[in-house]
């Protein structure tokens, strides 16, 4: 059975196609202004890459903030259930999942059957999300893709508040003017993200093994900071960013 999952996040749109639970391919694109169009585009691009026709897809599930705008999907499901399903598919041993996306971060626990047992999401603030990191990258005039490696070079991370994105940005600017190194500031930013997420994770109760998903999982600095804050090791799959879409395609198999 061939299924597809479409995950429309606030920053990126992702698509994945699975055949009998095997990943055939996946794709990431910017969401932009029009979520509906973004879902359609990323899906069509992926099909083209795979040299497949839309008619060969039997079932499609959409997820993410734009889930209801994907009109061609058979069903819309929340990213919480889909991230749980995706992580369970990648490693059925996993019990906790930390997903950090563009505008939200969430922590969920799953049972041995892959069912979500509990979850928590960030409060109404971008602190502790991908957007937070984007804002910081702009303030530092750095490329977000370099953040991970740069932060690993720091031995004295700066202290940055985790309460508010806007305040944190002005803190970063003042640290720059004080001549703190870019590496230390970035490491401090990662610690701030980690502290925000770890308190949420503790509320739900972290059970190992822990997997991190979502676009921010590509940032090794955040992963390390979270490991330190939670005292656990965290695995990251090569499909971390498209995990929601993979999970959606898994859920589509059960429709």
């Amino acid at each position: 059975m061939i299924t597809a999952g479409i995950d429309i996040g606030s920053i990126t749109a992702k698509a994945a196609v699975l055949e009998d639970g095997r990943i055939l391919g996946s794709k990431v694109a910017f969401t932009g202004y029009n979520a509906r169009q973004a879902g359609k585009n990323v899906f069509e691009d992926l099909l083209r890459e795979l040299d497949m026709d839309a008619s060969s897809i039997e079932k499609t599930v959409s997820t993410g903030y734009g889930r209801n705008s994907v009109k061609f999907a058979d069903k819309a499901m929340t990213e919480i259930i889909c991230h749980g399903a995706g992580a369970y598919y990648l490693n059925p041993e996993v019990r906790s999942i930390i997903d950090v996306g563009g505008q939200d971060s969430k922590v969920l626990t799953i049972d041995s059957d892959g069912r979500v047992k509990d979850f928590a999401m960030n409060d109404k603030c971008a602190a502790g999300t991908g957007r937070f990191l984007e804002v910081m990258a702009r303030a530092l005039e750095s490329d977000l893709d370099d953040f991970g490696d740069l932060s690993l070079k720091s031995d004295k991370p700066s202290k940055i508040s985790s309460i508010c994105t806007v305040f944190a940005e002005s803190e970063v600017i003042s640290l720059i003017s004080k001549g703190k190194s870019r590496e230390d500031i970035i490491a401090g930013i990662h610690e701030s993200v980690a502290s925000r997420i770890s308190s949420m994770a503790r509320r739900v109760g972290v059970k190992e093994p822990v997997m991190m998903t979502g676009g921010v999982a590509k940032n090794i600095g955040v992963v390390r900071a979270l490991e330190k804050a939670l005292g656990v090791s965290i695995e990251v799959s090569e499909f971390a960013q498209v995990n929601g879409a993979v999970g959606a395609a898994i859920m589509a198999m059960r429709l």
Binding site: M77, T78, E79, I80, I81, R115, V116, K117, D123, K124
Partner: peptide, 28 residues
């Protein structure tokens, strides 16, 4: 999360995702 009468503090999409996920959990 919300304020009982200050509607400026309510985020529909965030609340909706939480409720939908919660119901999916119960259904599962």
């Amino acid at each position: 999360e919300s304020h009982m009468i200050d509607e400026r503090s309510f985020s529909e999409s965030q609340s909706e995702t939480r409720i939908d996920a919660f119901m999916e959990m119960i259904k599962q």
